[in-house]
């Protein structure tokens, strides 16, 4: 009998074992729901799977009675648009500032303390300021994501830039490159895949800021909907929305990874 620490599950067993917790949660939910329903037919806290399916059907496949829109898809569209704009702007800022500061010490000197200070400000605390300055429209929600995520991206890219082997920069100089050429041809292409990594890491925070901003001031969006139906204890809508957001987050992360693998095979082979 090998030691427990040497016992490796086969691929199939591993997959099966991975599914078990999910199945257990579903069963536990079903049992809990049944118990509550037995006590009170009208219980809303743990709706049955039929009720959830009804909820999904109502939100996603029947036009809203008030506006005639398919709310679920409209919410998804608005949220994803905000997230995409926010993340794109933050990524550009992170790349430009992080790269400049990481590659050019004279730019890093005045920026470093400032970025450290800004990254310590809790973004949620300045959300009211954003609403006051940028109004309650799209801009303030996008700005919250930008402000929340870009300090992290800047710091991460700055650090990755400084981590590039010194030898490469020296070599590039002996090949006759000037500062600009070395940044464009040696530093930038090597930092791009690291930007993908950083963006993937920051997506969780970006979702948090998005949903928070939508919860407070919005007229559509996934976060808005969850907080709206909370008033009616509509767990049959909230639960599928949460699952949907999780799936979206997973899908975006997966797409970014695939894209990065496709664009930068040398980077992933190196690791």
């Amino acid at each position: 009998m090998p030691r427990l620490i040497n016992l490796q599950p086969s691929r199939r067993l591993k997959a099966a074992l991975g599914i078990i917790p999910f199945v257990l949660i579903l069963i536990a939910y079903q049992v809990g729901s049944d118990i509550r329903k037995a006590e009170n037919e009208q219980d809303r806290l743990l709706p049955s799977f039929e009720e959830i399916a009804d909820g999904v059907n109502r939100m996603a496949f029947e036009p809203s009675q008030r506006t005639g829109e398919y709310l679920f898809w409209e919410d998804t569209k608005s949220s994803l648009t905000r997230l995409a704009i926010g993340i794109s702007i933050a990524a550009c800022i992170g790349l430009l500032v992080g790269l400049a500061a990481g590659a050019i010490p004279i730019i890093a000197a005045p920026l470093n303390p400032l970025i450290t200070a800004i990254s310590l400000v809790p973004p949620m605390a300045i959300l009211p300021i954003l609403f006051i300055v940028f109004g309650l429209g799209e801009l303030s929600k996008v700005m919250l994501i930008v402000i929340g995520v870009s300090p992290f991206l800047i710091r991460d890219i700055l650090q990755r830039t400084q981590e590039l082997p010194r030898e490469q920069l020296i070599k590039a100089q002996t090949l006759g490159g000037n500062s600009w050429q070395i940044i464009v041809r040696v530093v930038f292409p090597q930092i791009l895949p690291r930007l993908f990594d950083a963006v993937r890491l920051s997506l969780g925070a970006a979702w948090l800021f998005l949903i928070a901003a939508e919860a407070i001031a919005a007229t559509d969006g996934l976060g808005y909907r969850i907080f709206l139906v909370r008033r009616y204890m509509s767990m049959d809508v909230i639960l599928p929305y949460v699952v949907w957001i999780t799936c979206l987050a997973f899908a975006i992360d997966w797409c970014l990874l695939k894209l990065s693998r496709w664009l930068f095979p040398w980077y992933h082979a190196e690791k």
Binding site: P165, E167, Q168, I170, K171, A172, Q173, T174, L175, G176, V186, P189, Q190, F264, W266, Y267, E270
Partner: peptide
Amino acid sequence: EPSKERGIVFQKYSVFPH
């Protein structure tokens, strides 16, 4: 400052991986 007249080969990290 490193210049074109002096080429260098290090033990590693001499080439550009990208």
